[in-house]
């Protein structure tokens, strides 16, 4: 896939009474590494959850390379090219390292049967939409039967697809520095490696836009700087756009080409790192929470 452009227009997200995002408008050009910063609770993770379909935004629109994606279910959005990692690591803890990446590759293992039956956004009231799902049922059922038959009979086509997926998973693991750990259970990896595995798994989905939620949280400076190198390499080798939520200012300033600052769910600033660092509104928002000046360590 080629890197995607992200356009977010007037995005709002409301939880009973609490406004987590308000009128966020943003454009990230293809191939950019974009930083998303802001104090704790500013709505950064919520922003990711909206992009990936975990939450259905209460207002606004999201476009990925021109296609409107808000309102689509998460697995469809993933199929269209958005992948993510999680702030509080959420690996499949009892599966092996290799299997974790294979799940990431799920939609790209050509064993017959697709997961995306429709990319239509819901337009009718929920009740109607729930019934409309039934329309796709015969096709979905056929799909499922084909996939089950393939899994049981395991014809050469399926074997080849599985083998190719395993090869690719090994490549991805090597790319993030996890060669040799393929058969370990994910839960037994050291903390830093778990973050790397999350990235490899996300890359398995072949993203055009990669969302990284605090990938260096809890890492020491050396680990963090090797993560910076990895993020750059990923953007170059895998041709993705990257949005990075990050607290360690050295990381943000070092790797991001452009930065958006959120505070209380609103975008309060946007621009290149140097300008952000000097921006009085941003400094104001961070006052009393933590220093924004370079090198400072933020609480994880």
């Amino acid at each position: 896939m080629t890197a995607a452009e992200l356009v977010v227009d007037g995005l709002g997200m409301q939880f009973e009474g609490l406004t987590a995002l308000a009128d966020v408008t943003l454009r990230v050009p293809p191939g950019e590494i974009h930083g998303l910063i802001g104090p704790n609770g500013a709505g950064k993770t919520t922003f990711f959850n909206c992009l990936t379909g975990f939450y259905r935004p209460t207002s606004g629109a999201i476009y990925l390379s021109g296609q409107r994606i808000d309102g689509l279910p998460p697995h469809v959005i993933t199929g269209l090219g958005i992948a993510r990692t999680f702030q509080n690591i959420r690996l499949f803890a009892n599966m092996t390292v290799l299997e974790n990446v294979l799940v990431g590759e799920h939609q790209h293992i050509a064993v017959g049967g697709t997961d995306i039956l429709s990319t239509r956004r819901p337009t009718y009231p929920p009740i109607v939409e729930r019934l409309l799902v039934l329309r796709g049922f015969p096709r979905a059922a056929l799909n499922g039967i084909i996939e089950i038959a393939g899994a049981v009979a395991r014809p050469p086509r399926v074997r080849a697809a599985e083998a190719a997926a395993v090869d690719r998973a090994r490549e991805l693991l090597a790319a993030v520095g996890l060669r040799g750990r393929e058969n370990d259970l994910a839960r037994n990896l050291p903390y830093g490696d778990q973050r790397r595995l999350e990235i490899a798994r996300a890359l398995g989905t072949r993203p055009a836009l990669l969302l990284l939620d605090e990938p260096t949280a809890g890492m020491n400076p050396q680990e963090a700087s090797s993560m910076v190198g990895l993020i750059r390499r990923i953007r170059d080798e895998f041709a993705t756009t990257v949005i990075l939520i990050e607290h360690q200012m050295r990381v943000v300033m070092g790797v991001c080409e452009s930065i958006t600052v959120l505070d209380y769910g609103r975008k309060i600033a946007e621009g290149p790192p140097a300008a952000i660092q000097r921006n009085p509104t941003v400094i104001e928002a961070y006052l009393g929470t933590r220093a924004i000046q370079g090198g400072g360590h933020a609480a994880p």
Binding site: T52, F54, P74, H75, T78, F92, N94, H106, A151, V158
Partner: peptide, 23 residues
């Protein structure tokens, strides 16, 4: 198979399985 992995992923964490593209 791929189906079995998808099942296991759902058992482990349904949200994340969906975020990895599993319907």
């Amino acid at each position: 198979s791929r189906i079995g992995r998808a099942w296991e992923a759902i058992r482990e964490d349904e949200d994340v399985a969906a975020a990895m593209g599993v319907n």
